[in-house]
Amino acid sequence: MRPLPVGRHGLLIESGSGEEAEALHAELLRRRTAGDLPDVREIVPAARTVLLQGLDDPSRLAQEMTQWQVPPLTDTRGETVDIPVRYDGPDLAEVADLWGVTADEVAGIHSATAFRVGFCGFAPGFAYLTGLAERFHLPRRSTPRTKVPAGSVALAGPYTGVYPRSSPGGWQLIGTTGAALWDPARDRAALLVPGVRVRFVPEEGT
């Protein structure tokens, strides 16, 4: 864990890996719920870091954190969200090629993977899901699409994501879901929030 300065009221904690950053994020949330964290406006996890904003005394927290014992993530705790998916994306064949498997096997591998929301970004409710084995990591498309439909289930790098609404995008599209990823009128606007576990459940007939 390496704390880096972010202005007078922020801290960027850099971890050695995505897993470590997720574990630190979970610990920060646990401490905040327990009233064991100074007031903070934002806790923003990302690929290998957690950003804290709106702190009164970042250096004091940075020093305290050197004493923390951060427990590793467990696979069994926390909420799980099931996302129904039809594996019918336009890049399914290309992904199958890159993985060296059939299109059906792509669906099998993807739906058998236990995902976790590492972080959100890009658009409201867009979650970067970790959990795919390294041999299934993929490059982005060389030419991004100008329009990716809402509900597209997609892959890029180590991540899986679902487009909450139609937008440009460079990820490989393998499927479609009808789940509402983002609805600001809902109590919980984002279906997928950092730390939540996610399973993709193939819909009947796909």
Partner: peptide, 29 residues
């Protein structure tokens, strides 16, 4: 750099080397 959280007022430097000062509608990562 793997994606990381962006603060208000962050001065980000894209590959063209010209700094961008992030204002209120900046991306979060």
């Amino acid at each position: 750099l793997p994606s990381e959280g962006m603060a208000m007022g962050a001065v980000q430097v894209p590959p063209d080397g010209l700094p961008v000062v992030f204002l209120a509608d900046h991306p979060t990562t």
